[in-house]
């Protein structure tokens, strides 16, 4: 926890640290009072459980053997980091996060560039594109698993049958999408969900571009690619970073898609799912907590970068 705070403090210092004049103690507390309920609530509900997690992670505690609860030092961490299944789930988490974020960022950029142009029905197209993000995540996972990917009655294989029949062929390929490429199936469903998010952030970035630079470039006869490469892309850089980091924070924690589409089977179990399973099915509280701490450390590393990006955007905002 303190790592986040120190990282935070380091990020923050240049932004706001204005040496305040010494205030009389009482007025200082009156000023602080409205802040306290939120602060206390948040510390109690989000920070204390983490402390508990940290403590439990050093204990041998399996709910099925309540008489064997005791401290074991770093045993759980040794298990977490050496257990093949858990290690695999760390790798899976990284794979899922990186591929989902990169693909949806790229698609989001292309779509944002398309939507940045004026054409008939732009508002409607934008509305259609936002729809995937607004479908409840479990609903979307169920939709992909049963209505689209299902080998027998899913839409994909149904369309394959239609297309093959159209050309008079009788045995259309009917791949079992989820079994044959489980990770790609999960990634596809998540990319479908996250592309609109990236698109919205990047579109906001595109529409905040300074118009003068464009006019200058057009007058100078710059090609579309040159304008994109030397004006648009540098301007979008921080929006791309922001999209990537926020996307990573949300996708790292993804539970719904893995839980619904594959139930963590076929090598798709990511860390949140594995922790859920260790705790919910294996009842091994100690090991689940140690895995939780590992996730926290991983997220702190990402979060440090994320905070830096957000704070730099804020500084920009303040300058205007």
């Amino acid at each position: 926890m303190s790592a986040v705070e120190t990282a935070t403090a380091r990020v923050v210092r240049p932004v706001g640290a204005r040496p305040a004049r010494a205030q009389p103690r009482r007025t200082a507390w009156i000023r602080r009072a409205p802040l306290l309920p939120a602060l206390v609530f948040l510390i109690v509900v989000t920070q204390l459980p983490f402390v508990a997690t940290l403590v439990i992670s050093f204990m041998n505690w399996n709910a099925l053997y309540p008489d064997q609860v005791r401290f074991t030092g770093v045993d759980n961490y040794r298990t977490v980091l050496t257990d093949a299944a858990l290690r695999a789930s760390i790798v899976t988490t990284v794979e899922l996060t990186v591929s989902v974020v990169l693909v949806s960022l790229l698609l989001g950029l292309l779509i944002a560039l398309l939507l940045d142009r004026v054409f008939l029905g732009r508002g409607l197209v934008r509305t259609m594109l936002i729809a995937p993000f607004l479908v409840v995540p479990v609903a979307s996972a169920l939709l992909w698993k049963h209505a689209l990917f299902n080998p027998v009655y899913g839409l994909f294989n149904g369309v394959l049958t239609d297309v093959w029949h159209l050309f008079g062929a009788n045995s259309p390929p009917q791949p079992d999408w989820i079994t044959q490429s489980p990770k790609a199936a999960v990634v596809t469903a998540l990319v479908w969900q996250w592309t609109p998010f990236m698109m919205l952030i990047l579109l906001a970035g595109l529409q905040s571009r300074p118009a003068e630079a464009f006019e200058a470039a057009t007058v100078d006869g710059a090609s579309a690619w040159q304008t994109f490469r030397y004006i648009t892309l540098p301007h979008l850089r921080r929006y791309l970073e922001l999209g990537a980091l926020l996307g990573s924070i949300y996708v790292v924690q993804n539970f719904d898609a893995v839980f619904t589409i594959t139930s963590g089977g076929l090598g798709t179990a990511n860390l949140p799912y594995t922790i859920y399973q260790t705790f919910y099915q294996a009842h091994d509280y100690g090991r689940a907590s140690a895995a939780g701490v590992v996730v926290v450390i991983g997220t702190i590393i990402i979060a440090t970068f994320a905070l830096r990006v957000v704070s730099s955007l804020f500084r920009e905002e303040a300058k205007r």
Partner: peptide, 16 residues
């Protein structure tokens, strides 16, 4: 930023 940093910690670790 403290408020924001709590959002970035994975909820799953607090579940138990």
């Amino acid at each position: 930023f403290f408020f924001l940093s709590t959002k970035m910690l994975p909820a799953v670790a607090a579940l138990l």
